[in-house]
Amino acid sequence: MLNITNLHATVAGKPILKGLSLEVNAGEIHAIMGPNGAGKSTLGYVLGGREGYEVTGGSVMFLPGTVRAEPVEALPSSNLGDQEKESPSTGSGRTEEWIDLLALEADERAAAGLFLGFQYPVEIPGVSNVQFLRTALNAQRRARGEAEMSAGDFLRLARAEGDALGVSMDMMKRNVNVGFSGGEKKRNEMVQMGLIAPRLAVLDETDSGLDIDALRVVADGINRIMRAPDKAVLLITHYQRLLDLVVPDFVHVLADGRIVRSGGPALAHELEREGYAQVAA
């Protein structure tokens, strides 16, 4: 699903990621933990394609396995060298190919199946959640050569997703994240994820700012939306408590711009007991 090899990235000229490698397969949930300032959010932004986060080395390959009606011009389909793996099209028109994620614009990455859950979701005055999401959903569908969704279908879907996450239709009609509490913003991120139904979700501190009830709602959302054989999650957190509810298959420690240790769920408990300094040493 995701293959990060020796990734280097700078922010404002300062090296932050210093040779990060990580492999995520379909059906897996990976937790990334690490001290403040380790570069966790930077990793998320680099994957998402944010301007100002400059990749200076390494590669990121993405195999979304997206169902696609026809090839999309914006996505590179050749020159993938050694990493090119192509399975033959099946009867349903499904094509699978590795994508050079770093060659795509941010919106193209989203259309390819990547979702970035923000540590600090952005407020957009004057644009309602409904308008924002419908525009996003239809932009992605267009980019994939699919038909746009009607207003009626969209509203039904939005209502169902909102209900599941305790986000009322009233909130859906309000401006994106404007006046939302920290917890509401995070739940709203999950509503967006549910509607967009990505292949790979990179969730940056989705648990921060949540009380225990909201944490449970959000965790249920992650499990429901993303626990599937053809999906994967990169869960950035520095608390054990989310990982009790969304149990990862792998736990990695990111320190000083690199993965310094990897293990199973037990590693998270070890980190909780002994701290990063000890474990990362």
Partner: peptide
């Protein structure tokens, strides 16, 4: 806001128009 929108699949041009 433009990056937030782009991360949801909205192109820069469309995001600018929306804002």
């Amino acid at each position: 806001a433009l990056f937030y929108m782009a991360s949801r699949g909205i192109s820069e041009a469309e995001g600018k128009a929306l804002l």
